[in-house]
């Protein structure tokens, strides 16, 4: 039974790591620290994916969130904030509304869990080779994901062109 126990101990450690860093990211007054704690939380999620043996998703999680999104967040902090300054305390109205939103979210989650409960896993591990993911992604049959894949890529392309248009310098008028 020990291997099973070790397996679940790792799960609880990872879960505690994710939640702990999430709480720290929310409570810290230094904005850069918040970004770093968010990053650790996302790395913890990637660790959870590794624990589930879905390495491809884990690697994508690290590339997209750690290598991309958090770096962009940090960049925007660098460009806008001053080092070492604490953020101002949130106003009371904002505190009340965010508390309300949090409580409602928690209530929803709780009611869903109570209604359906956790179903134990079937026991067999995921067996996803990158080849299968690639085949599935480019499969245009009923079970494939070629259409959503293309739709998302067009969305991203539109976003990129939009960025370029916004960032484009207008040429000075020839006089």
């Amino acid at each position: 039974m020990l291997s099973v126990n070790a397996y679940s101990i790792i799960f609880y450690l990872l879960a505690a790591f994710i939640i702990g860093n999430g709480v720290l990211a929310m409570t810290t007054r230094k904005i850069f620290r918040a970004a770093i704690f968010l990053l650790f939380s996302l790395i913890g999620v990637a660790g959870l994916y590794f624990w589930m043996h879905v390495e491809f998703v884990a690697a994508v999680q690290v590339i997209v969130y750690v290598g991309g999104i958090v770096v962009l967040i940090i960049f925007s902090i660098f460009l806008t904030q001053q080092t070492g300054k604490d953020m101002p305390r949130p106003t009371n109205t904002r505190m009340i509304f965010s508390a309300l939103a949090a409580i409602l979210g928690a209530a929803l989650t709780y009611s869903l869990i109570r209604q359906y409960g956790f179903i134990g896993g079937s026991g067999d591990q995921f067996n996803v080779s990158p080849q299968r993911i690639g085949d599935q992604m480019l499969d245009y049959q009923d079970t494939g994901y070629a259409l959503p894949f293309e739709v998302i890529s067009i969305l991203l392309l539109a976003a990129m062109i939009g960025c370029i248009v916004i960032a484009l310098k207008s040429k000075p008028q020839e006089s």
């Binding site: 790395i43 690697a59 590339i63 750690v66 958090v70 770096v71 940090i74 080779s129």
Partner: peptide, 21 residues
Amino acid sequence: VNIGVLYVSAVSSIGVIGILM
């Protein structure tokens, strides 16, 4: 690991966070 090179390019991007930090 079955995603070898993808893992490498993913994890090596964590290093930049240390530099930014």
